[in-house]
Design a protein around this nucleic acid. Structure first.
Ligand SMILES: [Mn+2]
Ligand SMILES: [Mn+2]
Ligand SMILES: [Mn+2]
Ligand SMILES: [Mn+2]
Lengths: 155, 155
DNA sequence: CATGGACGGTAGCCATGGCTACATTATTGC
DNA sequence: GCAATAATGTAGCCATGGCTACCGTCCATG
C-alpha cells in the first residue's frame, strides 16, 4: 500500500544524494567489470587449450565455454578488434602479448580465489563454481588479502 | 606461431571432454547468475528507497543505480513481468512478497560479504565496491563459511 | 487555479551475447 | 584421389541493458 500519489507536500529534497551517488558509482563499476568478464574467460580458455592441445580452435572453445561455435566466432572477432587475439579464417586462435598477459593474470587470480574458498572448507566443485564468477569482481586489495590468508593459514 | 593447419594426423580425440564439460557447466551457471544480477540489485534498491523515503520512485532508482530513468522504466517492466514488483504508471514502485523476500536475502548476503571483506582488512569503500559484484556469485555454502568466519574472528 | 519544472513514459538507436539454419572449407579414411 | 565428416563461417533472429530525444503528467507554489 505504500503506492499512490506522492504524499506529504514537497517530496524529500533528495538529501540522499551523497550515499546514492556512491552506490551508483559502485554499480557502474560492476557493470564495467562485466563488460570485461567475457574477454577474461576467453583468454584464459585459449591459454588452457593452447597448453593442452597445442592450439586453441573454435569447437574446443565452444565446448569449454558452454556456448555454440557461432558465439565463439563472433566473440573472437571482438577480442581480435580489442587486440587480445589474432586469428585468420580456418586457422587456430592465438593470444597477442597483451592477451597472454591478461590470461596469466586471470589464471593466477582464478586459482587464488578458488584456493582461498577451499581454505575456508568449501568443497572443491562449489569453490570452482563460485570462483568462476567471483574472480572478475576481486580488486587487487582483496586479491592480496586472499593471498595473505593463504600464506598464514589459521590453526 | 602455434597457428596453422591442424598438424599431426587426427586432432586429439578431445579426451578433454570431462574437464571441459565441467568448466562449461560452471560458466553457464555464472551466466545464469548474471541474468539474475540486475533483479537483485533493483529489489535491494527498491527496498532501501522504500525504507528511506517511504516510497521507491523512478528517478530515485535511476540516481541510485547510476542509469537513466529510461533504463529503470524498462527494467521495472521486466521485474513486473517476473513477479518481483508491482507498479502503475506515475505511481511508486512496490515489491511483491516474492520481491520482498528476495530483497531481504540480498541485503543480508550483501552485508555479509562486505563485512567479511572488511574483516580481512579491506578498506570500507573497496570492500563495498567488491561486494557489489561478488555478492551475486556466492553460493549458500560460501555464504555460510563467510558467516562462520565472522562469528569466530582470529586473534 | 494556473503553470513551470520535476517526474514519468515512448520511440528508436546501439552493442553484447545468446541462438538456429544453412553454406563453405579442410581433413581424413577409404 | 575423393567422398564423407568435422570444423568453420554467414545470415538473421531474439532478449537484455545501455543511451538520447522528445513528449506527456502532475503537483507545489505563486
Ligand atoms: Mn570467470
Ligand atoms: Mn550487486
Ligand atoms: Mn548489493
Ligand atoms: Mn558478475
Amino acid at each position: 500500500m505504500p503506492t499512490g500519489p506522492a504524499k506529504n507536500g514537497r517530496r524529500r529534497p533528495t538529501r540522499t544524494a551523497g550515499p546514492a551517488k556512491r552506490q551508483a558509482d559502485y554499480l557502474s563499476q560492476t557493470r564495467r567489470e562485466h563488460a570485461h568478464e567475457i574477454a577474461e574467460d576467453y583468454v584464459e580458455a585459449i591459454a588452457d587449450l593452447a597448453a593442452e592441445a597445442g592450439q586453441a580452435r573454435v569447437v574446443g572453445l565452444a565446448r569449454r565455454l558452454g556456448v555454440t561455435h557461432v558465439t565463439v566466432i563472433r566473440t573472437i572477432a571482438r577480442l581480435k578488434k580489442a587486440g587480445f587475439v589474432t586469428a585468420q579464417p580456418y586457422r587456430g586462435i592465438s593470444l597477442t602479448d597483451e592477451g597472454c598477459a591478461l590470461a596469466a593474470m586471470c589464471k593466477n587470480r582464478h586459482e587464488t580465489v578458488a584456493a582461498f574458498l577451499r581454505s575456508l572448507g568449501i568443497p572443491e566443485q562449489v569453490a570452482e563454481m563460485d570462483a568462476e564468477g567471483i574472480e572478475h569482481h576481486v580488486s587487487p586489495e582483496t586479491l592480496a588479502a586472499f593471498k595473505a590468508c593463504l600464506r598464514k593459514p589459521r590453526p
